[in-house]
Amino acid sequence: MPNIEVNGKSYETDEEGYLVNLADWNKDVADYIAKTENVAMSEQHWEVVDFLRGYYDEYQIAPAVRVLTKAIGKKLGPEKGNSQYLYELFPYGPAKQACKIAGLPKPTGCV
């Protein structure tokens, strides 16, 4: 298993860079993963990441993109609940990339 090193602490990840243990996540780890993904975290990025962690907490899964987009629209408004907005923040896919930064497993039903 590959590991990442943040602030002198080692965190286990899978071969695609997703955190193995959900409880390992913190903002510094998120920042580190974001950098490896070439994402500069802004307030808007954090909003999505926090939303994802909340979603996971409630449903125990990482949502598929379509579901995430709809749920964000419901909670944060239609100007954010659309794929253009989310892909601008996370060019390699909001579900995949944002989930990775949020320390969640890869979305189930992600095709």
Binding site: E58, Y59, Q60, I61, P63, A64, V67, K70, A71, G109
Partner: peptide, 14 residues
């Protein structure tokens, strides 16, 4: 074991 029962409540969103 993972408690997957909350996931049934996500089905509506799917």
């Amino acid at each position: 074991t993972k408690n997957f029962s909350p996931t049934y409540r996500a089905l509506e969103g799917y």
